[in-house]
Computed example of a mutant assay.
Amino acid sequence: MSNKFACTIKRIRFDENYAPADSTRLTTNFANLARGEHREENLRRTLAMINNRFNTLASCDNPNADRYSLEIDIISAELDVEGNGQTFPFIEMLKSTITDHKTNERIEGMIGNSFSSYVRDYDFSVVLPALGCKFNEKPEDFGDLHGKLYQHLINSDVFKAEFKKQPVICLSVSTTKTYYRTANVHPILGVEYTNDDYSRTDDYFAKMGLSVRYFKPENATAPLAFYSANNLLSGYTDFELISAISTMESFQKIYRPEIYNTNAAAGLVYQPSLSFGDYSLTRIVYDRVERGQLAVKQGKWTEENFIQPYKDILNEWAANFSIENAGAA
């Protein structure tokens, strides 16, 4: 019998043969592309976009823009709440490895990138509507359980044995906020943007121990939101940062072309909008409406299969959780 709240890590290669596992959220960036009659073509084109963007940013000694390619693994973390071998799919992230085709060296890429969570679906798609919360309203304990489960995972011996650094999660900027360009320019991440508006999402990630900074990389049309626990600017290598940018910017061009594949870049003051009309579509097919509807279904599934069955043990565990004992099963 295993320990309560024991963590396990599984890897699945994200390539043109990828098929989502039964436990994968179908709204997840990578899973949503691997469905339907265009699945293999979608995956090939997505991987080509990622590699092309990486080589554009890693241009030194790379005259033909083909020196590097990325291998991407889907990292699935599961929790055994009762210690009886029955696991729940907690989160999925991406881990990249860079191949240098000139030296045949394999180089560590970023852990994190995309972030997929059933409990997050439950919080945003079930809890908030049930309470009748309006824009940016939330209960005081909103995200507490999710944040503690996340910190338990990344501080576990299982996670630390697999990954040397903590994740950096890279998301789209919000269409409800205004961003202001600063004079700060990072050699890899690009121009920094700021905003001072309260965000329910930022608060949610803060309970995971993550803070956000916004950067628009070279030749990008909009800033990306980078959530990290460590120092984003000094805690990661150039290749790790480039791998995160190339991976997540490619996904955002597919899913939010009105922001990330526009024909005009963000200016000094930037208000993202999904109604912006001057953009180009990628040649990658997916169902945006279905993707939105599935989030609610996944949240209700989480309520029925995780929150309600384990309510008492989850509440007791969360009440006794502290950063000092995070990761202990």
Rank of each mutant, 00 (worst) to 15 (best):
Y214R: 07
D197Q: 15
N261F: 10
R213N: 06
S275R: 08
S211K: 11
C170T: 14
R291P: 02
F205N: 02
M208S: 03
G190F: 04
S172F: 09
N195E: 13
S243H: 05
F276I: 00
Y236G: 00
F163V: 06
S250R: 03
A229T: 08
V289D: 11
S280W: 00
Q252E: 14
Q271R: 11
D287W: 09
D197Y: 11
L241K: 15
L210A: 05
W301N: 06
N263I: 05
S273V: 08
G292F: 05
F276Y: 13
F205E: 00
P217A: 13
T282H: 04
E290P: 01
F251H: 06
E192I: 08
L233C: 13
Q298D: 13
L224I: 13
E218S: 14
I284E: 04
Y214S: 03
T237E: 10
L224C: 07
R291G: 00
T237Q: 08
T201H: 04
D287I: 14
V173Q: 00
L232R: 01
T237G: 02
N195F: 05
S174P: 02
K207W: 09
E249T: 10
G267W: 12
G190E: 07
L274Y: 15
L233F: 15
Q166T: 06
C170A: 06
D202C: 00
E218D: 15
S280Q: 14
L233T: 15
A222V: 15
A264S: 12
D197L: 13
F239W: 11
L189F: 03
M208V: 01
R288E: 10
T201R: 04
Y260T: 14
L210N: 03
Y227I: 03
W301F: 14
Y286A: 07
A264L: 12
S273N: 08
L281G: 02
H186Y: 06
T221H: 06
Y236A: 05
L274S: 14
A225I: 12
E162V: 04
F215E: 02
R181A: 15
S211C: 06
L241A: 07
N219G: 02
N230A: 14
S172P: 09
Y198T: 07
F163P: 01
G292W: 01
S174W: 05
S228L: 01
K216S: 07
V191I: 10
Y286N: 10
I259S: 00
F251K: 01
R181S: 15
Q271S: 12
Q293Y: 08
L210G: 02
A222Q: 06
R213M: 09
Q293D: 08
V269L: 12
S228I: 02
G235W: 03
E240Y: 08
Y270P: 03
Y279L: 09
K216A: 09
L224Y: 02
K165V: 03
G267D: 13
A244T: 12
T194K: 12
Y260H: 04
P257C: 04
F205R: 01
P217L: 09
F226H: 01
I259P: 00
Y198H: 14
